[in-house]
């Protein structure tokens, strides 16, 4: 299979397959989580703290007092990686064209060099987080195979995207195909791994904030 054939497969059947599996998994996981239900809380809220859940969505993105100093790599690496990746995913014009093709929605993008800087920052941050995880014995102990896999699957689209943009390899078409296929692999695994937090993050935070608020520890 030539690079162009692989690319065309990735833009066609591969994309349909990946998106189908992803949507299937996301709906399944949400249905499973939401249908679990919670026992009715008959106690009065202590104190009544409306909006605690919504506030928690934001406050959990900020380090608790002192934690930034204690674990700078975790926080700064996390910020740089997530922001860098969000810029690369949502503000690179060819990616916006993909969203336009899928959703009919589009928005202005950034000049490529800025996206490039964001991508490099995300790659460096991911590498730093990996090293931090390998060096710290506690983190290493806590890391499961799923975590290593999640790291690799997240790293692959970034590094192949970088390689495609900078023509690191002679065969650009094949590199681009690899980039698209790596994204599709990530998208397929996403709902069935810890990476599902991309979808469940805000719901989980809202629930935690809301239930904690009712119990008297409102954010």
């Amino acid at each position: 299979m030539s690079g162009l054939e692989l690319l065309t497969w990735g833009r066609g059947p591969g994309l349909v397959l990946a998106l189908g599996l992803c949507i299937f998994g996301v709906i399944l996981r949400f249905a499973e989580i939401l249908a679990l239900g919670r026992r009715a809380d008959l106690a009065l809220p202590r104190p009544n703290s409306p909006g605690s859940g919504w506030r928690t969505m934001l406050t959990r993105s900020l380090p608790p007092p002192g934690m930034l100093r204690r674990a700078p790599l975790t926080y700064l690496g996390g910020y740089v990686f997530h922001i860098g990746m969000a810029v690369a995913v949502f503000l690179f014009v060819p990616h916006i064209e993909l969203f336009r093709g899928l959703l009919g929605l589009h928005w202005p993008g950034l000049p490529n060099p800025l996206v490039d800087i964001a991508s490099i920052a995300a790659i460096v941050a991911l590498l730093a987080l990996l090293v931090g995880r390998l060096v710290d014995p506690v983190k290493r102990l806590l890391t499961t195979t799923g975590d290593w896999l999640a790291w690799a699957l997240t790293f692959a689209p970034l590094v192949t995207g970088y390689a495609a943009y900078h023509h690191v390899f002679e065969d650009y078409t094949l590199t681009l195909a690899m980039h698209i296929l790596s994204v599709e692999l990530l998208v397929v695994v996403l709902p069935f791994s810890k990476l599902f937090h991309a979808f469940s993050l805000f719901l989980a935070r809202w629930y935690n904030g809301e239930i904690s608020g009712r119990k008297g520890v409102a954010s």
């Binding site: 998106l19 992803c22 709906i27 399944l28 249905a31």
Partner: peptide, 20 residues
């Protein structure tokens, strides 16, 4: 555009959502 899908995806995605 080179980054756009070459085949329609909406039906497949709707089917996948229903299956999910």
């Amino acid at each position: 555009a080179l980054s756009m899908p070459v085949t329609p995806v909406r039906k497949a995605v709707a089917g996948a959502a229903a299956a999910g």
